[in-house]
Amino acid sequence: MARIIVVTSGKGGVGKTTTSAAIAMGLAKKGHKTAVIDFDVGLRNLDLIMGCERRVVYDFVNVINGEATLNQALIRDKNCNLLYILPASQTRDKEALSQEGVGRVLEELKKDFKYIVCDSPAGIEKGAHLAMYFADDAFVVTNPEVSSVRDSDRMLGILASKSYRAEQNLEPIKEYLLLTRYSPERVKLGEMLSVEDVQDILSLHLLGVIPESKSVLNASNSGTPVILDEKSDAGQAYGDIVARYLGENRPHRFIDDQKGFFRKFFGSK
């Protein structure tokens, strides 16, 4: 049975697209046929992060309007043949996505894919609403920072009340916390909210912590999801998250300040 995952946050710039790209790639690399959809109509960026921006011919809105078939619009990833990308449209018409249209495309995808990852735009407008409306699971991406935590809490309220599952009185959407841009050094100094702090406030099941890492920008510069950089801390953290989501039991990493005496002195990263 296919599962629809929404990657959401409310606030912008916390790492939704980075996360969508990474977990979609991670799921596909684990052998599950996966589609990742960009819901940010007018401001598409998933294609850049996935490195397929020059291969976009048709987009999500074209499919909804019947101007292209799903197969014409889906772009097969260059690194993994089980991963497909459905880019957002660059139209300025915010009403281009309809609930009926999105539902129809998702139903069609469900026949062929195991996981469908919906990359939500920031905010609580139509695109964000439709990205989460049909979801089975929600990955709530949060930074250890006040405005991001507050917005995540707002999103949790919306997930619980304005989704298909909520409206039909079905089992609620499963919500998971992904804490990104985490800096254990700053937590230790009392300058940053800790994992426990954020969990106390949001009461969410922690799927994983992504440390603040140079590898994320490097990955987006080159258009390869950071999870493929297996040597990097962020890549490994995303690997753990995918494994945990699939039911593997992996202890949490990157939460404590691991810098030893020597590394502190020589400042290696």
């Binding site: 006040v146 809490d153 309220g157 009392g190 300058e191 940053m192 909210l193 106390d200 949001l202």
Partner: peptide, 25 residues
């Protein structure tokens, strides 16, 4: 640094705010 850390201040502010917003929502 023996004073209240900014992180604990953030947590306190958030807890109050979130509780209030949840109840009014």
């Amino acid at each position: 640094s023996s004073k209240v850390s900014s992180a604990s201040l953030a947590k306190e502010r958030l807890q109050i705010l979130v509780a209030h917003e949840r109840s009014s929502l």
